[in-house]
Nucleic acid binder design. Structure first.
Length: 596
RNA sequence: GCUCCGGUAGCUCAGUUGGAUAGAGCAACUGCCUUCUAAGCAGUAGGUCAUGGGUUCGAAUCCCGUCCGGAGUACCA
């Protein structure tokens, strides 16, 4: 049992025994004592005054005495106003340290056969352009939240729904046919996703010019946008694709494969992956079937123009279109189909969608529609809604070229990491691949931490003019601390020092105790991160831990310590911090270098 | 218009179910490398927690109003 719940229980019993009060356990506020005060754990007694009928100091005094007498690990107490600060025995803290030492499972809950199965959908790219910074946030959050759910004892299936069909890819296809001169990724040495994206932009350029030309001839803007030859041609391609025209389907396959090859490189760089990939071209027809079934069953209605609608006014929402008047499906239809297919494939207990907050409404509607269609799991789907990444110039828009490309960004960061290492004269001893891998590790560490440390629900600002920091509250700061720990441990091994997890020390300094206390909070941080779907909680925990370690490292020598038992304690402590940081940052998908 | 989300130091962000004197990093200024890695440590300075009310022993946190910003809002995904 954790020390917190031990004290909670003790407090309830104490209130009963002292004042005959029946206090519900959740009314007991137990928190970590603030640094400026003596003690380890604090109980706030203000809520108890109505039971004790005494002043806050007296109540705290009574309760303090009771807890010291009745709970072994509580050794002493002091009272300041309504705050009862308890001192916990050193042995308790050393016990925590021992359980975290050399234990890569510390803080994690085991996954068992009975564990809930959670499917996490993330990434979900369109296949007409390369990934950008917004996708990076999505991918990092999706991957990290999956790891965090696993750490909380869930079975997780990571999945990706690739939006591989529709007018957007037809635009790239048309432009490539028209102006591509048979270019391929190999022929011009460009990543496939970038090549296809190039023709998406090319399409837009021609399209805009055509519209402008028509408008000049006196055609209304709206009409011009519908009549421009390019858009007509792209629509024709979409129609041919739906009719399974061989040539069109071949072109579609070829260009999509270019994109997938490109995405794979980016995914690999980011260190993310999937257990199962769905393609919208496989699911949209299922969605249509489901909608038609709903129509037959009277859940949905058909209008005079042949379009199919859901009436959500009973749920406080509007009417929602599910099939267009020409019978084609919309985004919502496809998501219904995908959901059905997934639940056929897996016995999913919970479905999590990692999708931006601009689609809050969409998922609200999806949950209701699935429920109406009779899928019992519909209501329980969880939309992990994250905020946008904003640039100083405003929002990113693909077509307006105001995007930060994912591959470019990573390349830049690796370059910065390389220059920085050279400036600092680090890693001169490392050669070729080892050095290069470390640069990548640092660059990705900086990027991932930068993105994951902020509350996922909030919009965040990214300024491409200022490169991401490597000092202060950053990924490299944490990696650096880890590398230092590893360095000390290597030196200890060189001196043939064996580290004994059974620590015996007379007393430990306050900095050391702070560190052990911080380690003891890791399991709670993992749990909280899981409950709140927030990698940021893990990121901030790791930062606090490492910051505390650096203070300790600065003030105390480890290998230079003369007292053998103290030296051993500090080695166990350093090692445990390294272990926890590695586990924690691992939940963020950040790797830790042995040296940097 | 309506719905949802946000507003904390010059900038980027933390701040657990309401608790003690609101915290970090960056930027600025000052110290600390013959000692386990200075990508570090210590310090100075920087706040009307958008704003006005309310709830209470206690509010950055909960409720209401106002202002500002963002997103969504029936045939784009």
């Amino acid at each position: 049992m954790s020390i917190e719940s031990l004290i909670q229980k003790g407090t309830v019993e104490g209130m009963k025994s002292l004042y005959g009060a029946d206090l519900p356990e959740n009314q007991v506020q137990v928190q970590n004592t603030r640094k400026d005060f003596e003690g380890d754990i604090t109980v706030v007694v203000f809520p108890f005054l109505r039971y004790s009928k005494k002043g806050p100091e007296q109540t705290a005094e009574d309760l303090g005495k009771y807890l010291v007498e009745n709970i072994e690990t509580v050794e002493n107490f002091n009272v300041i106003k309504g705050f009862l600060n308890l001192e916990i025995s050193q042995n308790y803290w050393l016990g925590v340290l021992k359980s975290s030492f050399a234990n890569s499972e510390f803080g994690l809950k085991p996954v068992t056969d009975d564990s809930e199965l959670v499917m996490v959908e993330y990434s979900s790219p369109n296949t007409n352009k390369p990934l950008h910074l917004g996708h990076i946030r999505n991918n990092l959050l999706g991957f990290s939240i999956s790891e965090i759910l696993k750490a909380n004892g869930k079975k997780v299936v990571m999945t990706n729904i690739v939006n591989d069909r529709g007018i957007h890819i037809c635009k790239s296809m048309y432009a490539w046919k028209q102006w591509g001169n048979g270019e391929t990724p190999e022929s011009i040495g460009m990543k496939g996703d970038h090549l296809v994206g190039k023709y998406y932009v090319e399409f837009d350029k021609h399209y805009k010019a055509e519209v402008a030309e028509l408008v000049e001839k006196g055609v209304s803007k709206e009409e011009a946008e519908n009549q421009a030859p390019s858009i007509i041609a792209a629509r024709e391609l979409l129609r041919k694709w739906e009719a399974k025209d061989e040539e069109t389907v071949e072109l579609w396959k070829m260009m999509n494969n270019w994109v997938y090859a490109g995405f794979d490189v980016t995914y690999k760089t980011l260190g993310v992956g999937f257990d199962k990939i769905y393609y919208e071209s496989d699911t949209y027809l299922i969605g249509k079937e489901e909608v038609l079934r709903g129509l037959e069953e009277g859940t949905f209605t058909r209008r005079e123009d042949n379009s199919v609608w859901a009436d959500l006014t009973g749920d406080g929402l509007d009417q929602k279109i599910l099939l267009r008047s020409d019978g084609t499906s919309v985004y919502m239809t496809q998501d219904i189909g995908t959901a059905k297919m997934r639940f056929n494939d897996y016995s999913i207990d919970k479905m999590v969608y990692v999708v931006g907050n601009e689609q809050n409404y969409h998922f609200q509607v999806l949950a209701i529609l699935l429920d109406k269609l009779g899928f019992s799991w519909g209501k329980d789907l969880y939309h992990f809604s994250y905020g946008m990444v904003e640039l100083p110039s405003g929002k990113m828009k693909s077509r307006e070229g105001t995007v930060v490309d994912a591959d470019d960004l990573v390349d830049n960061m690796v370059e910065v990491a390389r220059e920085m290492s050279a400036d600092l004269g680090k890693l001169d001893s490392l050669t070729g691949d080892d050095a290069e891998n470390t640069f990548k590790m640092i660059a990705l560490g900086a990027l991932k931490y930068f993105i994951l440390k902020v509350d996922p629900r909030k919009n965040m600002m990214f300024n491409p003019e200022e490169s991401i920091d490597f000092n202060g509250n950053t990924g490299p700061f944490i990696q650096y601390t880890y590398a230092r720990i590893k360095s000390v441990l290597r030196k200890a091994a060189d001196q043939n020092i064996t580290i004994d997890e059974n620590v015996t020390v007379e007393s430990i300094s306050s900095k050391e105790k702070d560190l052990v206390k911080r380690i003891s909070l890791f399991p709670a941080a993992v749990e909280e991160a899981g409950d709140n779907y927030s990698p940021a909680i893990i990121a901030n925990y790791c930062y606090e831990l490492v910051k505390e370690f650096n203070q300790f490292y600065h003030d105390h020598t480890i290998l230079g310590e003369a007292d053998e038992s103290v030296k051993n304690f500090r080695l166990v402590l350093a090692s445990a911090v390294g272990q926890v940081v590695q586990t924690g940052m691992g939940l963020l998908g950040v790797e830790m270098p042995e040296r940097m």
